[in-house]
Amino acid sequence: MTSHKTAQTMKPATAAKKLGVYLEATPAEFQEGVVSRTEFNTLQADPPEWLRELRRNGPHPRPVVAAKLGVSISGLARGGVTEALTTEQIDALKQEDPEWLRQERATQADVRKEAVRIKEKHAAREAQNDDDARS
């Protein structure tokens, strides 16, 4: 009784998401096929020129755009950014620094501060519980 493993594969959309690129900007053969785990690992370890170019200049998917602008994906939507942007467009937005972007960055900074505060509060509570358990 011999069992043979089938190669683990993923849809192009999943692979593009994991690679941090906008699916619609990838080559047709990438979009139309499936990506095996081996192919995916190769793409990550030794990216072809098209992948390096997409990562460098875009268009970038919304999570990457949000990270480059320092806002949340929801913040992008509130700012009216619903499409993929190129690096050039992102840089232009940073230069323009519209009110919505300043507001969303401030909101994101507040969210991060609150996350740190909660984490420290939980750590202090945990330390107190550990001390109580030892007593």
Rank of each mutant, 00 (worst) to 15 (best):
M1T: 15
M1P: 15
S3F: 00
Q8A: 05
Q8N: 08
M10A: 07
K11A: 05
K11N: 07
K11V: 02
P12F: 12
A13N: 11
A13H: 10
A15E: 01
A16N: 08
K17R: 02
K17N: 03
L19I: 04
G20D: 09
L23H: 01
L23I: 12
T26D: 05
T26F: 05
P27K: 08
P27T: 09
A28F: 01
A28W: 05
E29A: 00
E29S: 00
E29T: 03
F30P: 02
Q31H: 06
Q31N: 09
E32P: 05
E32F: 01
V34H: 09
V35W: 01
S36F: 02
T38G: 00
T38Q: 10
F40P: 03
N41I: 07
T42S: 10
T42P: 03
L43M: 03
Q44F: 04
Q44R: 10
A45F: 00
A45N: 04
D46G: 08
P48F: 05
W50I: 01
E53C: 02
L54G: 04
N57Y: 13
G58T: 00
G58M: 04
G58H: 00
P59R: 06
H60S: 09
H60Q: 12
H60K: 11
P61D: 10
P61Q: 05
R62S: 06
R62I: 14
V64Q: 05
V65F: 13
A66R: 01
A67K: 12
L69V: 09
L69S: 04
G70N: 11
V71Q: 13
S72V: 11
S72F: 11
I73L: 09
S74E: 13
G75V: 12
L76S: 07
L76R: 15
A77I: 15
R78Q: 10
G80Y: 05
V81T: 10
V81Q: 06
T82I: 12
T82A: 12
E83R: 14
A84L: 02
A84T: 10
L85T: 08
E88P: 10
Q89Y: 04
I90H: 01
I90A: 03
I90W: 07
D91V: 07
D91M: 03
A92H: 11
L93W: 08
L93V: 01
E96L: 14
D97Q: 03
D97V: 07
P98Y: 05
E99T: 15
E99M: 12
W100G: 07
W100M: 02
Q103M: 08
E104I: 13
R105P: 11
R105D: 05
A106V: 00
A106N: 02
T107V: 10
T107Q: 01
T107E: 08
Q108V: 06
A109N: 09
A109F: 04
D110S: 08
D110E: 11
R112W: 12
K113G: 06
V116A: 13
I118R: 06
K121V: 11
A123V: 15
A124L: 15
R125S: 00
A127Q: 15
Q128V: 10
Q128F: 07
N129I: 14
N129P: 12
D130Q: 15
D131Y: 05
D132A: 13
D132H: 14
D132S: 13
